[in-house]
Design a protein around this nucleic acid. Sequence first.
DNA 1: CTGTTAGCGCATTCAC
DNA 2: GTGAATGCGCTAACAG
Lengths: 334, 334
Amino acid sequence: MTIRKDDGLPTISDVALRARVARSTVSRAFSRPEMISASTVERVKKAATALGYVPNYAARALSTGLHGNIAIIVPDIANPFFPPLIRAVQAGADSEGYSVFLGDSDEDAGRELKLADRFANQVEGFILASPRSAQQNIMDLNKRRPVVVINRDIADLPRVLIDPALGVKDAVAHLVELGHRKMVYVSGPAVSWSDQQRRLALRHAAASHDIRIDTISAERPTFNAGLKVVSAVLRSGATAAITFDDFVAHGLLSGLAEHHIPVPKKFSVIGMDDVLGASTFPALTSVSGRCDEAGRIAIQLLIGAMQGKSSDICTVLRTHLAIRATTGQAFRRQ
Amino acid sequence: MTIRKDDGLPTISDVALRARVARSTVSRAFSRPEMISASTVERVKKAATALGYVPNYAARALSTGLHGNIAIIVPDIANPFFPPLIRAVQAGADSEGYSVFLGDSDEDAGRELKLADRFANQVEGFILASPRSAQQNIMDLNKRRPVVVINRDIADLPRVLIDPALGVKDAVAHLVELGHRKMVYVSGPAVSWSDQQRRLALRHAAASHDIRIDTISAERPTFNAGLKVVSAVLRSGATAAITFDDFVAHGLLSGLAEHHIPVPKKFSVIGMDDVLGASTFPALTSVSGRCDEAGRIAIQLLIGAMQGKSSDICTVLRTHLAIRATTGQAFRRQ
DNA sequence: CTGTTAGCGCATTCAC
DNA sequence: GTGAATGCGCTAACAG
């Protein structure tokens, strides 16, 4: 009848036996030491360490409903935008005693939801970074566990948004100041909230300078997509391009080099997210996103939400333009 | 007396009630459907989906000892070497139905062990990537749960090692062929297994070409460390450098540029890990490491170990030299 | 201050 | 083929 797991880990009963107290006393010695005498606490703790006992969080969770776990789901771990964010989340969670589940949705909404379902009954809350799921599904999830979203503007949910507006405004101003009047935006996936924000910011910035910025669509936000789009960019007659992210910019840079078009002498390029740092050549001017801070704030918001704090906090992070070497005076064709 | 969690999630009892069967029947309908009649299975499943029931893994684990979770611990998520590895692990785990905990030890052995303890009773196994802990501690952990290590050669443990030998050999041969006779190794952290392997491989390669390769120590494996080491590298009289990783190489490249030393005309540089791809200028020749495959294999090994398979499998991954644009004919000083 | 008891959600004997 | 009872490790409520 006995169900044997026998994983070798000592249980609360072992400790109780050794310390000659009831199991509940051991429990209290750990979770509410102030409720029992100091001497008993000490005796229990000594027995515990002697046995190498560590509380079983999964079992504890069964009666308390508190697992001490949270989950973060991202579309692609390998996208350099996310690791610093994940790192910040993990660090914040850790310092509050939470362990973190990591899910990679592989850019797929369905997988995202499946992961969430899988995690749901072992976590206290979720962080969804750039979620691909339908808004309704995310709100449903939020009914079960607190959810914090990053880079998705869902009302009634705590969220942190990296707003490209400021950086984009500076980017356009910077280009205009350098004499550029005709520029293009090389877009990313149209479904992405980020891309929409970037288009919007661009439109505003363009309007305020009384210029037009056309959009050229890169299929995917990758180096190769940037490479492919070169001829379209050149055909547009623009003297500068702003791209969806640094990868597209990098691809564009390479394509330009292949076409023997010197940057920034004859063409200027500005990336976004600033994940390539100064490693491109020429060093890429980029709209800097501070994804690590997004993670830091997200985990704070989640901890707040898990403690029942108010739930419609929207933190927006500003971006700025990191000017490096891919932007220069507009080239005037004869 | 009733302990109420009330997290809204339907339990097996709710399903049983709705399907008008016993709870055990519901359980069987999910875990061993062949034991009960097809019609009952269907009725139960219908009730389950109607209620939105998902089995509670944590509760299941309490009786089976099987959590369906694994943990991966890395020294630094933000180091580009790890995300592809983590991604591969997560994908492999996911396809086998496992969820993954992610721990970041922040390069600290103590934190690594604390994380492992914390995870121990909610996971079936561990993947330790480039672990910093003492060997004994890792072996102790392995007594409790199967452990697979990456880039650490611990006998009796399943492990996957990225062996730089081949790539390094090719790197040295490549440089020798280009006329280089004097080269230096810019090392990384001496405690690191990887650095030791790289030194060793270098020594062998040097011996076979009858040349000497001196070591210059970069404090940390970063861009700045690479930058700082430039004058020491130049003073050495070498015409080429091989570095601990791509970041150091990138720093070195920048430092060289500052000193107006053209690469590869007057100096050649080879990085390692190949995480910067072709984004540097000139595009960095590097010893390519295939960290994603390390992750893929590690999760396979772990799944094997969790199923009680043999436990001293050592997979070594070969590296190769990715020749790009930072290596050229040796410059002869007059 | 501490021991006793019951139950968290589930899988598993054992009967029927 | 299915239902009833028991226990996984732990905490909460209740006595004492």
